[in-house]
Write a protein that binds this DNA or RNA. Sequence first.
RNA 1: AAAUCCUACCGCCU
Length: 237
Amino acid sequence: LPSHSIVCRLLENCRSICELKRIHGVLMVFGLSKEQPFATKILSFSASCISSSRDINYAHKIFLQVPFPSIFDYNVIIRGYSSSKNPYKSLRLFVQMLRNDVVPDHLTYPFLAKACARLMELKLGRCIHGIILRKGFVLDRFVLNSLMHMYGSCSDIVGARKVFDEMPARNLVSWNTMVDAYAKCGKVISMREVFDLMPERDVVSWSCLIDGYVKEGEYMEAMEVFERMIAFGPNAN
RNA sequence: AAAUCCUACCGCCU
């Protein structure tokens, strides 16, 4: 029988899905594939290599083999689906998780918000927002940023701005997400107002701004901004 | 056994 530490080392040093499948196969032969921490390690590795819909299917199959999935296992698979072709599955897994009395954490919600954003499902997004309020995750910047992004992606600029205004503390991503939300809906005046108020900027801030102008056909403005960024650097003010 | 968190574009995969 392979020793615990050797299997762990194999899984930790695993570099490709192909290699993972071989180790998984060996573990199955020994009846160890559902044992912890192996099952979770296999799952998280498979989910970290997701680059096509084949990979997410494989990760999901592994998830189904995990006997009593923990919050970590759920987060890993929910995250995988949130950026997949079928983000709706994230939401289904979330419901399943609640039914199994696994309590979502501050990492679960950004994945759910992302799923709603990609689906452009404003109603579901608002529902997730409601749950976040009830569960008291309103102080988490990552959670709030992901909600703002969801509203922006669902073309609810008022909703996005409300989250932004009511946030207890904002970081660079909060500002960038707000600029991007205005850019997406073509409100270049408001976009610029927010951009000009930013306490700091990075290359993402500038590219959201430029993108907003380009989408509205304001090419001269886009070029000017681009040249300013090149001349002074994206972090300058 | 402590791994999984937010924004633009690009790239990778289909």
